[in-house]
Design a protein around this nucleic acid. Structure first.
Lengths: 349, 349
DNA sequence: TTTGACAATGCAAGCGCTTACACATACTTT
DNA sequence: AAAGTATGTGTAAGCGCTTGCATTGTCAAA
C-alpha cells in the first residue's frame, strides 16, 4: 500500500481574515461584510479594510467561505469532451463570462457516457457547484431528479425545448437539420447516405437524424430506404463510413453528415476515391467549425453560434443562481452556410 | 416534529457524515477514516459504513473537507485558451488522468495575458488548488514567488528546461524548431518569411523564432535579413500575414509558421494568390493539429504529443502533491512530419 | 431632555469535515 | 499473572469564514 505520510503544512500560509481584521482594526465580521456586502459598512471603514486586503493580497479561503455561506460562486459544467472544438469554444466563452462575474468554472468531461456523468455531477455538487451546465437533454432520469431535489439551477446547452423542466440555451436540432436536408433534396438528390454520431444518449445526434427523415418524407423520398451509419466523432471514422457508402453497389449521390468532422472525413474519402465534389458527390456537415471553411471545397454546413451559446448559458445560469426562479429557455438561430460541397444531383442515375 | 430552520438555498440538503455515521452505527471519525484511510478500520465496520455511504449516495462536502484536511484533491490549470485545439487536447488528457486519480480540475484561461494569470492563480489557490499546471515559462517573477512561498507544486507544460526551478513536461521549442528549419534550408530556400505568434510573454513562440534564426545562421543565411511578422493565433491572421509576404517585391520562397493554424492561413492565402504549394512556395507549421493532415496538400509540420504531455503533467503533479520533493523535468520527443507543403526552392530567382 | 429609529459594528455560533489524542479490547510477551 | 503492544474506535478541537443577534453611537422628532 502507499505509505501515506504526514502532509506537510504550507510553510507560508495564506493571509486570513483575522490578519486583515487586525491590520484594519476592525472585527472579522466587518471584513467579511466589506467583501460581501460593502454597502452596509461605512465608507471610511471600508477603505481601511480594503487597503489591508490589498496590502496582504488577501483572498478569502474558498472552502471556509463555501461552508459558511453555502454558496461557492462556482459553476460546474459537464461536457462530453473538450477535444471537440465546438465544445471547447462554447466552454471558453462560458468561462470568460463567468470570470467577468466572479464565478469560477469547474469542469468535468463525461466522454459521452451517461453513467460517468452521474458520478461527475455528484462530485461537482459536493464541491459546491452552485449551478450546472449540461450538454443536451438525453440522460438518466436520476440525474434530473438529483438536480431537482437539491434545487440546483441548471441549463442545458446545444438543444432547445420550449417547455422543458430545465432551462435550455440552444436550437432545435431537428428543425435545423430538416431545413438543411430540404436543401439537399431540392438539389435533386434521391439516394442519400447519412453518417451520424452515435445517437444513443445523444439527443442532438438523434434529432438531427430525425430531421433528415422528416425532410426525406416531405420531399418524396422513402425514409426507410435511407441508410444510416453511426460512428464516433473523428475524421478517420467519417472517412471510413463514407468509403463504405461510396463503394457500395448503388452509392448515394449525397452524404449528409451529422457534424463537420465526419463530413471532413467524408470529403477525404471522396478525394481518395477520385470523386469530384460536388459534381459527383455532395457532402454536408453541421456545426460550422473552422475547418469547414478551410476545406477545399468549402464545406456546406449549418452554422451554430457556439460562443454565443456559451455566453448566454453563463448569463442565464448566473441570473438563476442569484435569483432562483423559472426562466424561459433561449432559442438561438442557426444559419445555413452554403460553400462548395453541395451541388445538384448528377443526371445519370 | 420540530419545524425546519430556514435553509438558505437547498431545500434538500445533501447527506452528511453524521447521517452515514448514524446508519452505520459508528462515530463520524470512523466514517471519515473509512473514506480516507480505509486500511485502519476493521473490515466489517468498513463494510457497514460503505453500505451506508452507498445507500445515501453520500459524498463528503468539499469545502468542509478542504478546511479540515488542508488539501482539496483539486488541481488548477491556467492555460492561454481552450479554443486552441492543442491546449484543449492536452487539457482533456490532463483531466482524464486527474479523474482516474480522484482529483478534480479547476480551469482558468488567461488569454495570454500575464496579469490575468496572476489574478487567476490567486483565485485558484484560494479555492484550494493543491497544485498548478501552467503553460510555458514566461511570466512575472511575482507569480513564481507566490508559488514558491506557498509551496505549491507546479509544473510547466509545453516547454522543457532541464534545471528550471519548477518542473516541466515538454520539449525544447528552440531545438525542435531549429532542426525543422534546417530541413527547410536544406531544400535550398534562402529567402524565407517567418509568421509567428506574438512572442511577448510567450517563450514557446519566441524560442521557436530563435530556433529559426540559429538554423539560418548555421545554414549561411543572414538571420537579420529574415523578416518576421507576429500575429495572433487565427487562420485569417495567418492568411493576412502570408498575403503581405507574398505580394511584397521580393517574396520569400518559404514561409515558416510558428504554428499550424497560422500555416493553414498561409496555405489559404497561397491558394488565393494562385501559387502552387510546394512548387512555387513552401509552407511549414508546428504542432501537428488534426487540420494539418486534412489540408491539401498536407501540412509539413512538427508533431507535438499534446495528449501525452497532458497525461504526464497530471501524473507528475499528483506525485508531487502526494509527496512533495524535487522531481526532474520530463522531456518529450517531437517528430517532424513530412507531408506536402515543403519542397525544394524554385530554381528561378 | 428624552426617546425612538436607524446605522455601524462586534460577538459568537455554527457550517461539515479531519485527526490528534484518549481509551478500550485482545493478544503477546515476560 | 502482570505488563506491554497492537488494534480499532470514540471524543472533541479546530479549519476560516458568514451572519443572526446584541450592542453601541447618532440624530431627529417629540
Amino acid at each position: 500500500m502507499q505509505p501515506e505520510k504526514t502532509r506537510k503544512r504550507r510553510a507560508f500560509s495564506a493571509p486570513k481574515i483575522d490578519d486583515v481584521a487586525e491590520i484594519a482594526g476592525v472585527s472579522t465580521a466587518t471584513v467579511s461584510r466589506c467583501l460581501n456586502t460593502p454597502d452596509v459598512v461605512s465608507p471610511d471603514t471600508r477603505e481601511r479594510v480594503m487597503a489591508a486586503v490589498t496590502q496582504l493580497g488577501y483572498e478569502p479561503n474558498f472552502g471556509a467561505r463555501v461552508m459558511a455561506a453555502k454558496r461557492s460562486n462556482t459553476i460546474g459544467a459537464i461536457i462530453p469532451t473538450m477535444e471537440n472544438a465546438i465544445f471547447a469554444r462554447c466552454l471558453q466563452a462560458f468561462q470568460e463570462e463567468l470570470d467577468r462575474n466572479d464565478y469560477t468554472l469547474l469542469v468535468a468531461s463525461s466522454s459521452y457516457k451517461t453513467d460517468m456523468e452521474k458520478q461527475q455531477l455528484r462530485t461537482l455538487l459536493a464541491r459546491g457547484a452552485d449551478a450546472m451546465l449540461l450538454i443536451g437533454f438525453a440522460r438518466d432520469e436520476e440525474i434530473y431528479e438529483m438536480l431537482e431535489e437539491r434545487q440546483v439551477p441548471t441549463v442545458v446547452a446545444w438543444s432547445y425545448r420550449a417547455g422543458s423542466r430545465v432551462a435550455s440555451v440552444g436550437f432545435d436540432n431537428k428543425i435545423a437539420m430538416r431545413e438543411f436536408a430540404d436543401l439537399v433534396f431540392k438539389q435533386g438528390h434521391r439516394k442519400i447516405g447519412v453518417i451520424s454520431a452515435p445517437t444513443a444518449d445523444n439527443d442532438r445526434a438523434s434529432e438531427r437524424v430525425a430531421g433528415i427523415m422528416e425532410s426525406a418524407a416531405a420531399n418524396g423520398v422513402d425514409p426507410s430506404a435511407i441508410e444510416i451509419v453511426e460512428t464516433k466523432y473523428s475524421i478517420d471514422n467519417g472517412a471510413r463510413a463514407a468509403h463504405a457508402f461510396l463503394t457500395s453497389k448503388v452509392p448515394p449521390s449525397a452524404l449528409i453528415c451529422g457534424n463537420d468532422v465526419l463530413a471532413i472525413g467524408a470529403l477525404k474519402a471522396a478525394r481518395e476515391l477520385q470523386l469530384r465534389v460536388p459534381e459527383d458527390l455532395s457532402i454536408t456537415g453541421f456545426d460550422d467549425i473552422e475547418l469547414a471553411q478551410i476545406a477545399d471545397p468549402g464545406l456546406t454546413t449549418v452554422h451554430v453560434p457556439h460562443r454565443e451559446m456559451g455566453r448566454r448559458a453563463a448569463k442565464l445560469l448566473i441570473s438563476l443562481v442569484e435569483n432562483p426562479r423559472h426562466l424561459p429557455s433561449e432559442q438561438l438561430a442557426t444559419r445555413i452556410v452554403k460553400r462548395g460541397t453541395l451541388g445538384p444531383a448528377p443526371h445519370s442515375s
